[in-house]
Design a binder for these strands. Structure first.
Lengths: 141, 141
DNA sequence: CAATAAAGATACCAACATGGTATCATATAT
DNA sequence: ATATATGATACCATGTTGGTATCTTTATTG
């Protein structure tokens, strides 16, 4: 799977922050986005460490977007929540396959990965917000 | 990950069968390919059910290739061992995301998946055998 | 025909990743 | 001072996947 749940939640949260423009507490996020509270907190903390949002403690505190939506690229979020985009890691993690360079399959998988990265690295939050008018709304809303 | 360990083992086994041309027992496969015996058996059984190989019981029995290498496509093997190639399944398995059709991200992920499928569906065993002269040889051999 | 060598079927186990929870510490507004 | 927010971190639950074990069935061969 290219996009994990955590990444998806992060996108929704960032989108919400972008639309709000002001400080938003996790309690609000969790209510509006219907995402489990402690999990949302964890995600916001990571976003903080990743430099996407700033946090303010205390009453009235919360999170605020640090970057412009058009500066937030999908690959960066994926990297933060799932590690580097990778589709072709050789099956033999430890004793790495000796023939990485000459392996035909590895080459082909590499091509796919490259393409995937290219597409993903061009997608930014702004695009997502505009392109999918209803991103992040499930059947239940 | 696009290719799981089981699929990789299957490819190696098929390659071995193709090169051998005759009935090969799991015990031989397991020795030559350095793959755990019971796991190899399981994989061969699946390959049998998938119609890639025929089996013969009893002494001297084993598995023999049913198709020509150029007729064995990677996507079919992947489907057999990992299920359908899928990179963009919506995170919300049960209550499926209502906006699949209008979701911008889903569209983009779909494009990637399509490309991946295209590349993979064109790769056949013959190509792998020729292209990667040493496919399936790890550092230890 | 008995013994043996193979596969068929199936249930089980272990390790790891991921989604999700809980708790205690720290900062800040009022 | 107290309430409300985040920071850090450790823990738990579930699913997937790699891997194992066992019992049954079939066929060869002496």
């Amino acid at each position: 799977m290219l996009i994990a749940r955590s990444t998806d939640y992060a996108i929704r949260a960032l989108k919400y922050l972008a639309e709000s423009g002001e400080e938003v507490a996790v309690s609000e996020l969790t209510q509006k986005l219907k995402i489990p509270w402690p999990f949302m907190r964890k995600i916001m903390q990571l976003l903080g460490r990743g430099g996407f949002v700033a946090s303010k403690k205390g009453p009235g505190g919360g999170f605020i977007l640090l970057k412009k939506p058009e500066e937030i690229y999908l690959t960066e979020l994926i990297k933060l929540f799932q590690g580097p985009v990778c589709l072709n890691e050789c099956v033999f993690k430890k004793k790495v396959c000796a023939n990485k360079r000459t392996c035909y399959l590895s080459k082909k998988l590499g091509e796919i990965e490259e393409y995937a990265y290219l597409v993903l690295s061009r997608i930014n939050l702004k695009e997502i917000m505009e392109g999918g008018r209803n991103y992040g709304k499930t059947e239940n809303n």
